[in-house]
Design a protein around this nucleic acid. Structure first.
Length: 230
DNA sequence: GCTCTAATAT
DNA sequence: AATATTAGAG
């Protein structure tokens, strides 16, 4: 029940700004997410399957939940805990979902603040899962170039807990991506030669050599190059 | 004063 | 690189 509302806004660097809206940020602990991506020791201390089962098999498979836009899975919202790789996009991707509800119990593992004096509240960053991004893109396209402003987008997406700031930030990047796409014709960071796609996953069109690198099939997050063009 | 956006920070 | 935060403009 630890409510992270006592967040300590550490003073930036001598900026005298005092207008922080106290809207709650709800995000998961970044540590949890980070741990997901970076555990190199899989083979050492693998927990028994019995431990994993209850976690990986909630009630409904994430993809299914996503398809129906329902559910505890919160398809679009689950950070990296749930395999976002299964949620490329859903047919009905504009139903509301939520990505908060994480702040409810995040106090469970918080121990460090006790040591440092109670000001160790960390805020997790939001994760734009493929589903969320898809909703985002749909909203943007529906609103048109002129209407696609953060506020409207947030409204259209109707995702609980999604803030205007979240969208604004994402939108900024998304626009950059669009610009770049138009300019170089394609993502000009890679040679026009099409790398021979080794069959990793049928559902994943291997697009970049990076995918080849990820031949274990795990895509932590699909960035704009891969997400954007829907 | 609010929202948008570009710049900047983490 | 992805997201957050700030700063300035409209």
């Amino acid at each position: 029940m630890l409510s992270p509302r006592v967040v300590r806004p550490q003073p930036r660097h001598g900026s005298a700004s005092a207008g922080s809206s106290s809207s709650r940020r709800h995000m998961v602990d970044a540590d949890a997410a980070n741990a997901r991506g970076g555990v190199p020791e899989w083979e050492v201390g693998l927990p028994s399957a019995a431990e994993l089962t209850p976690l990986s098999q909630p009630l409904i498979p994430p993809a299914l939940a996503a398809a129906f836009g329902i559910g505890p899975a919160d398809a679009g919202a689950i950070p990296s805990s749930v395999d976002a790789r299964f949620l490329h996009d859903s047919p009905t991707s504009h139903l509301s979902s939520r990505f908060d509800d994480y702040d409810e119990e995040e106090g469970e593992g918080e121990t460090e603040d006790a040591a440092t004096g109670g000001r160790g509240e960390k805020k997790a960053r939001m994760v734009w899962t493929p589903s969320l991004h898809h909703q985002f893109v749909e909203a943007v396209e529906h609103l048109g170039e002129k209407g696609a402003v953060p506020k409207a987008i947030v409204r259209l997406m109707n995702v609980d807990g999604l803030t205007r700031e979240n969208v604004a930030s994402h939108l900024q990047k998304y626009r950059l991506y669009l610009k770049r796409s138009r300019h170089g014709g394609a993502i000009a960071t890679q040679p026009p030669q099409a790398p021979p796609p080794p069959p990793c996953f049928p559902r994943f069109a291997a697009q970049t050599p990076q995918d080849t690198a990820n031949r274990n099939g795990y895509c932590p997050f699909v960035s704009f190059e891969k997400l954007g063009c829907d």
